[in-house]
């Protein structure tokens, strides 16, 4: 028996979210008396693969194959399913990012395994297998019973603490069986966002809404974010107006994020906006309207004009950093 965790790499490197997943998997394995096997697809050096051991992977299965240079959902599903069967996996864990969302449902059918998607807690129990997941766009949680022998979970990013509890790990190269014509997705070009902290990875996010008044007013918000090592985000109308890029749109119809700290500057706090940010550990709101709904979701607030408050926050962070 094993808990299989599918780890993606970015140009041969893992991210914090990867280690979160392995840490999570190792506790699930402890709860179910089994071991963590990590599956890596693509070219990752052994030194990087070995890092997974620190977080509890007792074995890393590494699959390299030129057919897998780009994500093809059918081919990847086939590889993960082969390894899941070979390792006798009871639980398969993927990230709840775009790759995980693309693969988990296919894998579910392939392995006849029910899915708990976007989980952000350890299973409530192993027998029966019950997990808690987001429902009604963050307005509730559902306790989901997975009835199949094999279970698939997609783990929400930033929802589990990294824990170093393992040591060395065994690395095994696996030759996945990929017949001719399996890969059907042809990738024509790739546009990568470089040099910026990804919104979904960030611990701190600074987000602006219509209360910022104009795209020309973003400089202090961006400066504040840079000083904090934070990612920038925005509300939907802001991206709809083209004030900020679409990648920054958070909320029900945009990105769903769970940073430790979320600054909502000039954002009213509509249900659809909160749907994307309500799992943040702390929400800080800056708004001229003391009755804005965002203050009901926030733990810290400033009733004031963003254009006056932001420069003060920038100053304070500079002072903090100077100490």
């Amino acid at each position: 028996m094993s808990v299989l965790v599918f780890v993606e790499n970015w140009d041969g490197k893992f991210k914090k979210a990867t280690f979160e997943m392995v840490s999570y998997a190792s506790i699930v394995a402890e709860m179910s008396n089994s071991n963590v096997v990590a599956l890596s697809i693509g070219n990752v050096e052994n030194a990087e693969l070995e890092k997974l051991g620190k977080f509890g992977a007792t074995k890393v299965v590494s699959v390299t194959n030129d057919k897998l240079n780009f994500l093809d959902n059918q081919a990847y599903t086939s590889v993960i399913a082969q390894v899941a069967e070979k390792e006798n996996a009871e639980v398969v864990i993927l990230s709840n990012n775009n790759t995980g969302k693309a693969l988990a449902p296919r894998l579910s059918v392939r392995l006849k395994a029910g899915i708990g998607s976007g989980v952000n807690h350890l299973p409530l129990s192993i027998t029966p297998f019950v997990v808690q997941k987001r429902a009604y766009s963050g307005n509730a949680f559902a306790n989901l019973l997975i009835k199949t022998p094999v279970k698939i979970l997609t783990l929400a990013q930033n929802s589990f603490e990294i824990k170093e509890n393992g040591s060395s790990t065994l690395i095994e190269n696996f030759n996945a069986d990929l017949g001719e014509g399996v890969v059907k997705t042809v990738v024509k070009d790739v546009q990568k966002q470089t040099g910026k902290i990804l919104l979904t990875d960030a611990d701190v996010v600074v987000s602006g809404g219509r209360g910022m008044k104009s795209p020309d007013n973003w400089a202090p918000l961006v400066e504040f974010a840079e000083l904090l090592g934070a990612a920038t985000a925005c509300s939907r109308p802001v991206s709809d107006e083209g004030w900020r890029p679409h990648e920054e749109h958070t909320g029900q119809t945009g990105k769903i994020i769970a940073p430790n700290l979320y600054f909502a500057i000039g954002i009213s706090g509509a249900t659809q906006h909160l749907a994307g940010v309500s799992s943040s550990k702390y929400i800080v709101a800056v708004n001229t309207d003391k009755d804005a709904p965002i203050f009901s979701a926030a733990q810290y607030g400033i009733v004031g004009d963003a254009s006056k408050v932001l420069p003060k926050l920038v100053e304070a962070v500079k002072e903090m950093k100077a100490k």
Partner: peptide, 16 residues
């Protein structure tokens, strides 16, 4: 494959 056993509301957040 799955069944919802019940729903829970998010914990109320501390006052601002």
């Amino acid at each position: 494959y799955t069944e919802v056993m019940g729903y829970e509301m998010p914990k109320p957040r501390a006052a601002c």
